[in-house]
Design a binder for these strands. Structure first.
Length: 706
DNA sequence: AGCACGCCGACT
DNA sequence: GTCGGCGTGCTC
């Protein structure tokens, strides 16, 4: 062995490179000895299905002649991977799954290539376009390509693959503009879609039940222009509404619904129909954001502020970011719609990436209910109202509404952790150095920033100068229960995360629901809605608290009849609060603009790009030490993370029980996000390769930085 | 992460 | 002279 073996190996490699490789490399598993290689393109470049950042590259394998026809780009294969190799002798290695990415004439790998072990399926599921998208998403989030591909390509179901997909129907006739006439630039947007252009718009939908039909018309217009279309909605119920609207418009056969409800096999069958080009239009929840729609002409997203658009599997991509990448990569139009508007969408408008698609003031006023506020100062003079712990105005609105139809009562979800706010004006307490949220630490209740860890002795409210703090309190569910007692003759129905009510009939009833679970009323809409405990929503330490409160309120209030038909909404919240004012004026766009301006001033996302690095103190320090950051980057912390509470369910990303973890935040100005992600990825890869202690968790665009 | 290679000390 | 400890480095 030794020297002569080495020379022989190089000879073989040269032979392989020179594509005269009729004989297999000598050192290969027994079963392949003397098996011939494919004559043309004998090398397969393979993405191995291992989400390890330091292995985040492609590997070359030899293609046996017997697999030549089947080992096409995009198919699933099994390969031996992981065993060490010495002196050209190769034994074993574990069988793992992967995807053929490319067939090549040669390899730049200096050693001997192992052969593909098996072609699992001839279905080309990872197309070049999908691979390009996955790679862009992985780069954006400092994640591993294999992790993203796992989100994008559903697991194989052999039975579904055996069935042929029905032939694609011809494009439908273009639909009329329908409700889009209610928006000044609506018909022009549809016309651009119909011409096959790629207009991008942030759409603030009018309140009421028409948005699913409008969304469907936009999708159908792209289809009629001979292109594909994709709509992502936050949950199965919203997706079902869009699905029903599309079926009403086009009939069946033109689109598929991709949601978790269908079950794995049916879902894979539908996904295959899309992948094979038999269906050109997809409606679904967030996993559908990767659906390989052919000749994509439109990506649509509904309610991008909903947290459900954030995938919780690594690297936690957000549907808005993925669809925005697709719109650019695939030259598709984009329609980001909702009843409210996120600061991120506002930024897309501000930077000119998207235009604005909103109705005129009069149209908004005609469609929206009357919104009234009840502040802390209002007293409950009516005894019945006092019994329900409700201000008079709220009690009256419920009573009058119940005379005409169902009344919605929105109560906040439990599970959020309120922190500190000014006792006088309730502005959340923030750090003077980095504007992070303040928290009381330890028994001595030292005030400390949860982001940068600096103490804040002698805190004073930036708004009103107040010096006293209060914890923000919850407790509205009981109010809703007592509400039922205040109206004993009325049926009370509840809808929440575990028991979501689909629809409610158009007759008097009290419908108590948590945000996002509101039943859609049959008929003209709720007669009234009561939005309880604005303090709980607004007092959250999250920097999105105001935006999120307004989003929840608008989604509920949009189910109420217009003011002209008696629709009334009462919100319990201080009338001076920005989110409350924006609800009263029904001005989500203005609210989002002001939110964005504030966040820009404070150096918050989405104007700044942030990443969180968490793990043991040593690991975090180690990573920060080896990180080559852009000069403009700013490191906040690290600070200790709160230890897991016994009551709260553990989510991925939480520290393991009993371990104390730290977290550092890194922020960069606009335009440096890609640099930051690349730096994080290479630092992480280096640490893992050199085995420098335990790994750290890296999150780009962390959600819980409040 | 696995997993194999390889260079060191206790055994046949 | 050989077995096997776990430190080190690669995975086509």
């Amino acid at each position: 062995m030794g020297g002569s073996e080495r020379a022989g190996r190089e000879g073989e490699q040269l032979a392989l490179v020179g594509q005269a490789a009729r004989t297999a490399p000598r050192a290969r598993p027994r079963t392949w000895r003397n098996a011939p290689l494919a004559e043309r393109l004998p090398v397969a470049r393979v993405l191995v299905d291992k989400g390890l950042v330091h292995l985040d590259r492609l590997f070359d394998y030899a293609v046996p002649a017997a697999m030549d026809a089947e080992a096409r780009p995009g198919v699933r294969v099994r390969v031996r991977f992981g065993a060490g190799q010495r002196d050209g002798r190769r034994e074993g290695g574990r069988l793992i799954n992967g995807f053929v990415v490319e067939r090549r004439a040669d390899s730049d790998f200096p050693g001997v290539l192992a052969p593909l072990a098996q072609v699992l399926s001839t279905e080309p599921v990872l197309s070049p376009g999908l691979l390009r998208l996955c790679r862009a998403v992985a780069d954006r989030y400092a994640g591993a390509l294999a992790d993203v591909v796992q989100l994008a390509v559903p697991p194989r179901m052999a039975r579904a693959e055996r069935q042929p997909s029905p032939p694609a129907p011809p494009p439908p006739a273009p639909p009329g503009p329908g409700g889009w006439s209610r928006y000044p630039s609506g018909p022009a947007y549809l016309a651009a879609l119909a011409r096959g252009e790629a207009p991008r718009a942030v759409w603030t939908a009018l309140p009421g039940p028409h948005w699913p039909d409008e969304l469907a018309r936009a999708l159908a217009t792209a289809l009629a222009a001979g292109r594909g279309a994709l709509a992502v909605l936050p949950d199965g119920r919203a997706a079902a509404r869009a699905d029903a609207a599309l079926t009403a418009l086009l009939g069946p056969g033109h689109h598929v619904l991709l949601t978790a409800d269908a079950g794995p096999e049916a879902r894979y069958r539908r996904w295959l129909a899309v992948s094979r080009g038999a269906v050109r239009c997809v409606v679904g929840t967030r996993a559908a954001m990767f659906a390989p729609v052919a000749r994509l002409g439109l990506v649509a997203l509904w309610d991008d502020g909903d947290a459900a658009h954030h995938d919780d599997r690594a690297p936690q991509p957000h549907a808005r970011e993925v669809l925005a990448l697709r719109a650019v990569q695939e030259g598709a139009a984009a329609l980001f719609g909702g009843l409210s508007r996120s600061a991120e969408s506002a930024r897309l408008v501000e930077t000119g990436w998207a235009g604005e698609l909103a109705a005129a003031r009069e149209a908004v006023r005609a469609a929206a209910p009357l919104v009234r506020t009840v502040g802390d100062g209002d007293q409950a003079r009516d005894p019945a109202a006092r019994a329900a712990r409700l201000p008079t105005l709220a009690w009256q609105a419920v009573r009058e509404g119940l005379a005409r139809g169902p009344v919605l009562v929105q109560v906040p979800r439990r599970g959020y952790v309120p922190r500190l706010a000014c006792a006088r004006c309730r502005t959340p307490a923030r750090c003077a150095h980095c504007h992070g949220p303040l928290a009381a630490v330890g028994a001595a209740e030292v005030l400390r920033c949860a982001w940068c860890g600096q103490d804040a002795p002698g805190w004073h409210c930036a708004e009103c100068g107040g010096a006293r703090l209060r914890a923000v309190v919850v407790g509205a569910r009981r109010t809703a229960e007592e509400l039922g007692r205040a109206f004993p003759a009325v049926q009370v129905r509840t809808s929440g995360r575990d028991h979501v009510l689909g629809a409610v009939p158009d007759r008097p009833a009290l419908v108590v629901s948590t945000p996002g679970a509101e039943p859609v009323p049959e008929g003209p809409g709720y007669a009234a809605a009561l939005l309880l405990d604005g303090w709980a929503l607004l007092g959250r330490p999250d920097l999105r608290a105001g935006e999120e409160a307004l989003r929840c309120w608008l989604n509920a209030a949009a189910l109420v009849r217009p003011q002209a038909e008696g629709g009334t909404v009462v919100v319990l919240g201080e009338p001076t609060e920005r989110a409350v004012q924006s609800l009263v004026r029904w001005d989500p766009a203005g609210h989002a603009r002001r939110e964005l301006a504030d966040r820009s001033f404070l150096g918050f996302p989405p104007v700044a790009r942030m990443a969180a690095v968490s793990g043991s103190p040593e690991a975090v320090a180690g990573l920060l030490g080896s990180l080559r950051l852009p000069a403009s980057a700013e490191v906040l912390g690290p600070v200790p993370l709160p230890v897991a509470e016994p009551g709260r369910p553990r989510r991925p990303g939480d520290p393991p029980a009993g371990e104390r973890w730290e977290r550092a935040l890194i922020r960069v100005p606009p335009g440096h996000g890609a640099e930051l992600a690349a730096a994080l990825k290479s630092a992480q890869a280096g640490r893992l390769a050199r085995r420098e202690g335990p790994p750290v968790r890296i999150r780009v665009d962390p959600q819980d930085i409040g």
